[in-house]
Amino acid sequence: MLIQASNLKKYYKKVKAVDDIDIEVREGEILGILGPNGAGKSTTISMLSSLIKPDGGKICFKGTDISKDPGVIRKTLGIVPQDVALYPDLSALENLKFFGRLYRLRGEELDGRIEEVLDLLGLNGRARDRIKHYSGGMKRRVNIGAALLHHPEILIMDEPTVGIDPQSRNHILETVKQLNSKGITIIYTSHYMEEVEFLCDRIYVMDHGRIIASGTKEELKALISKDETIEMQVDRADERFTAKLKGLIDVKHVDENGDRITIISNKNSGILSRIFEAALENGVNLKSIQIKVPTLEDVFLYLTGRGLRD
């Protein structure tokens, strides 16, 4: 076990940012921490990276308590904060040089590492441009690069794709896979379930500072294997129709978002015909309807009654 955290707690006045959670990080895996904004993901990784001290609990890195010796994890840790943690008035090269020197890299070794990182991230041509003149996606890539210079064993990435274009996002996701294939253990937080689903071997689902589920994708989806998710689009939102759906036998949850309605019901319950009857009764036209393969979004909806982006 690379990292073992038990009974972690962090309170800000009366707010329980992280409320008694256990996390294990295994060597060589990509571990996902999934949850909506404010779930406690960033606080959790701040504690795991020794940036903030927990109010309770213990974190061990390879068996050593990091509260007693934070240096043991810091040497081997790369961190990619949610914000672009770079000096905007300096060039990518100057930023990388500075962050490399923090890890005692010097001379040719440092230059070699910088070249390696620029190659990996496809930024060779513009290394001497100031960060503030980069696009959002390029900034994000340098943000990752600054965490890789010292060849970390563990890379913690806190929502590294927020606010960037799909092309840059795909590039970053591919880079994460590539880094993991080289043996780097990755802790990846996101509220984009498709990213976590694409990347992660194991996942912790967090909400309101607590871990509400954990396991592999398959294990999490198995939580709702007795259910099925039905998504439909209607011509207009209708309260009576929604109320009718909620009252149907076998329906466990109804989520309404404008003209889109998501239902979780018992599997193979023959619910479709009853939905059509309810629509006819209330004069609602169904524009589309489909039974979905369950996703992590559905798991979150099932566990919390809310969508990840609510």
Binding site: L51, R74, L86, L102, Y103, R104
Partner: peptide, 14 residues
């Protein structure tokens, strides 16, 4: 601190 460079420096061995 605002743009988290502070965090990045703080997790270094410095």
């Amino acid at each position: 601190k605002q743009n988290r460079v502070w965090d990045r420096i703080n997790v270094s061995p410095l």
